[in-house]
């Protein structure tokens, strides 16, 4: 943790609350998965919360977000309400994608949330296009594109980095380097394991930051966003983080040992921030209890909303395969 920095009471608690919302939401999702309420693939963000929460602080409401299949954190931190998010997990039509996308395909037009994309690297060219549209249409927005370090292996990554830099687009590349793509460690997938360095090949400023520290992520994201808004083109931010749980619900984790996970858990971003706020007298026990109670209520309401939700009629199956007009 960056011990000398102080976030201030309100902001420190906000960061903590946002991370806790994600952690609790996903813990419940995992239980609901075991109970058969949620199906398909479910990729948890446990351990990586500081990344999306930190980055989101630097974005404004007009900015766009492109994410991956591991996007519950981005969705919540972006302000997508928990009810429709949980309803999506349930496959209900009150879900933010009407139950058609599930965990991996969260969309929210109002919040410029352009989807969880389940093709690794699939979101990057899309983000280039969104940023291009914003620039051409003179909208003062930037696009934050999240992806794992596994996406860096894909051609789409390199092509997108090149285009974004070549065209000097308002695009923030956020690489969530959690050290594994499924079971493959970075060292077995990348000839250059210092991922932030890759930005240099594209004449793009790049920075690596401790992705377990929300304040450090936020500070780096603010610097990056300021640079992008000043018109200097795209910025590459590598957030070094770790996922505490399996890749998805179908992963026996044969590729890493428990000690490694244990060592990283010592650096849990939530426990870390809590400790720091306490040490700086910015968080009392009452504050924490209040915060947790609020999240419990929000979560209970979200589950109730999802439970009460309804299934889209089968007669709607072909609806929206094509649209009659461009949604405004």
């Amino acid at each position: 943790m960056s011990d000398d920095a102080s976030p201030g009471r309100a902001h420190g608690q906000l960061l903590l609350r946002e991370m806790l919302r994600i952690r609790r939401f996903e813990a419940r999702c995992s239980e609901l998965y075991q109970a058969g309420k949620i199906r398909g693939f479910l990729h948890l963000y446990d351990g990586e919360e500081a990344v999306s929460v930190g980055v989101m602080q630097a974005l404004g409401p007009e900015d766009a977000v492109v994410a991956t299949y591991r996007e519950h954190g981005q969705a919540l931190a972006r302000g997508i309400p928990m009810g429709p998010l949980m309803a999506e997990m349930y496959g209900k039509q009150q879900g933010c994608s009407r139950g058609r996308g599930g965990s991996m395909h969260i969309f929210d037009r109002e919040r410029h949330f352009y989807g969880g994309n389940a093709i690794v690297g699939g979101g990057l060219p899309l983000a280039v296009g969104i940023a291009l549209a914003d620039r051409r249409l003179r909208r003062p927005a930037l696009t934050a594109c999240f992806f794992g370090e596994g996406a860096v292996d894909e051609g789409a990554f390199h092509e997108s980095m090149n285009l974004a830099a070549l065209w000097s687009l308002p695009l923030l590349f956020v690489c969530e380097n959690n050290l594994y793509s499924m079971g493959t460690p970075v060292a077995l997938a990348e000839a250059e394991t210092d991922i932030a360095r890759k930005a240099r090949c594209y004449h793009m400023p790049g920075e690596a930051v401790d992705g377990m520290d929300p304040m450090a992520v936020e500070a780096a994201a603010r610097r990056a966003v300021a640079a992008i808004r000043s018109g200097s083109g795209p910025f590459f931010l590598e957030c070094r983080t770790y996922r505490f749980r399996a890749h998805s619900m179908f992963d026996a984790q044969l590729y890493r040992d428990k000690d490694e996970i244990g060592r990283w858990r010592q650096r849990d971003p939530i426990a870390g921030l809590q400790q720091q706020l306490r040490d700086q007298q910015l968080l009392g026990s009452d504050d924490l209890a209040g915060l947790e109670a609020g999240i419990e209520r929000e979560l209970a309401d979200a589950v109730a909303f999802a439970e009460a939700g309804t299934l889209e009629p089968v007669s709607d199956l072909l609806r929206f395969v094509t649209l009659d007009k461009v949604p405004q």
């Binding site: 199906r39 398909g40 496959g91 209900k92 994608s97 139950g99 058609r100 996308g101 599930g102 395909h105 299934l311 889209e312 089968v314 199956l317 072909l318 395969v321």
Partner: peptide
């Protein structure tokens, strides 16, 4: 298969 992208929700996937 019905001419739509395969949806997540079970009843719709089955129907497709």
């Amino acid at each position: 298969t019905e001419e739509a992208p395969i949806p997540y929700a079970k009843h719709l996937e089955d129907a497709a």
